[in-house]
Nucleic acid binder design. Structure first.
Length: 443
RNA sequence: CGGGGCGUGGCGCAGUCUGGUAGCGCACCUGUUUUGGGUACAGGGGGUCGUGAGUUCGAAUCUCGCCGCCCCGACCA
């Protein structure tokens, strides 16, 4: 993409409503624009990152054997009355009525709909196990939205639902989700720690929350520092292997790690003192096993091998896709701007032309652009007629992990400069080597 | 919903207390200049001061209502 043809409305000054780094930087980098309290338009740059995150979530869910679909945002109140949650959910649910005066709602979650789909079509235990998920916009009418996309009213969320014949099968589904979530977060450059959590309005007593450590997090967390040494890495995983999934769950959840909701001072005190940590965390996902809580009232049953009708065991699992942008920025920024992890960056590499209009510099940039594109990468070429300082400031702000700087001075010596946004370290390289280096980083 | 604050060109703000017909910086347009970390100079465009009613000869400024937004708290992913 050439910056002169893109839409990137960066701000030099910070809009006054933004309090925390991620909100401030998303506004300044031209990623989002507030439409009303807690509701945002996603401008091209923000939309690009949102789609990257969404893509990672899709890939990892499909890899785990879960099946993508899409349910509507607007739902009928009928199903919610049936489950008993229409009254329980409270003011947080946005209630609307259609032209006929029928009660409708903008879905805050999808247990009712998915269960209805399931009970309409699934009759036999032979159709199990089944895990369906979708990535769709939700609305929760927060009393006080804040922190930009971290705590919006409208938000994009992946939510999935597993249906199993037995509790054992459902717990394996639970484990699969834990593993697939760990992989997803790691690909986004985040360390998200599974912590024992509270069921909340979704219900269920078997549940973990995934938290990213950050000073601006909404939750207070307590953990054994040994959990932050764990990483998934690129280990091979067979999602049908019950023992392997169980082993990974144990590896990642056996050490003490809890939010303040479930924190237990006595257990915490058993951790060696030098490993005890308390910090703040941003919740980026949660998984639940809730047994037959929804399948019984809604009549989601299958016939078992014995011919008896039995309610299915269910679980649900969510990843806050839009809020992840905020979490990633909270965990990856400095005073100049965002620093995208390679896995989610909107463009893999920036090209800064220090002297737009100089025939040699222009040609060198065009060559780099073509070479990077040819390697399957998407560079952002700053071809505006701006001063070097302005171009650098914009690049630093939008946070592309790598930048190639091209100027007449370097070209005389046959080199361009490859700079890491994260470390600030620059290397002078021939254009060919610089391209090869960037391609290798993303290989 | 309780407490606090804000609403003035696209963004950040001053002016409001003490009423007299709107100003600064950035951004934008034109020209010159400059060119390796947000150049400098000159010229220029753009605002019914959130909104409605009232007080007044006169309201951004005073009074009342309404709307919107932000912060703290309770709530929440």
């Amino acid at each position: 993409m050439r910056l002169s043809r893109y839409f990137l409305p960066v701000l030099k000054e910070t809009p006054s409503e933004a309090q925390i780094a991620s909100h401030r930087l998303m506004l300044r980098a031209g990623m989002i624009q507030q439409a009303s309290a807690g509701i945002y338009s996603w401008l091209p740059l923000g939309y690009k990152v949102l789609r990257r995150i969404e893509q990672i979530v899709h890939e990892e869910q499909i890899r785990a054997g879960h099946i993508p679909m899409l349910m509507p945002t607007v739902q009928s109140a009928e199903l919610w009355r049936e489950s008993g949650r229409y009254d329980d959910y409270g003011e947080e649910m946005l209630r609307i009525s259609d032209r006929h005066g029928r009660d409708m709602l903008y879905g805050p979650t999808n247990e009712e709909l998915i269960t209805d789909i399931f009970r309409s079509h699934v009759r036999s235990y032979r159709d199990l196990p089944l895990t369906l998920y979708h990535i769709q916009w939700k609305f929760r009418d927060e009393i006080r939205p804040r922190f930009g996309v971290m705590r919006g009213r409208e938000f994009l969320m992946k939510d999935g639902y597993n249906f199993d014949l037995t509790k054992e099968d459902a717990l394996h589904a639970y484990n699969r989700h834990l593993v697939s979530y760990l992989r997803s977060y790691e690909r986004m450059g985040l360390q998200a720690i599974p912590m024992r959590a509270d069921g909340g309005p979704i219900g269920g007593d078997y549940t973990h929350e995934f938290l990213v450590l950050a000073d601006t997090g909404e939750s207070e967390v307590f953990y054994d520092s040994a959990v932050t040494d764990l990483s998934f890495g690129d280990r091979a995983i067979d999602y049908d292997d019950v023992e392997q999934c169980q082993g990974i769950l144990e590896e990642f959840t056996s050490r003490y790690a809890r939010t303040d909701e479930t924190h237990d001072e006595t257990l915490f005190a058993d951790i060696p003192e030098d490993r005890r940590r308390s910090a703040r965390g941003i919740e980026v996902g949660q998984i639940f096993y809730f047994g037959t809580k929804y399948s019984e009232p809604l009549g989601a049953t299958v016939q078992g091998p014995d011919g008896q009708s039995t309610p299915v065991h269910m679980g649900s699992h969510g990843i806050g896709v839009s809020r992840l942008l905020g979490a990633i920025i909270e965990a990856n920024h400095d005073d100049k701007g965002i620093i995208w992890p390679e896995g989610v960056t909107p463009f893999q590499c920036g090209i800064v032309n220090l002297k737009q209009g100089d025939a040699q510099a222009d040609a060198a940039c065009e060559d780099l652009y073509a070479a990077l594109t040819g390697r399957g990468l998407e560079p952002l070429y700053d071809d505006r007629d701006e001063r070097a300082g302005a171009k650098f400031a914009s690049m630093d702000l939008i946070g592309l992990p790598w930048r190639i700087t091209v100027g007449p001075r370097g070209l005389k010596a046959g080199v361009v400069e490859l700079t890491s946004r994260r470390t600030g370290v620059s290397e002078e390289l021939s254009p060919e080597v610089a391209v090869a280096r960037v391609a290798e980083i993303y290989a």
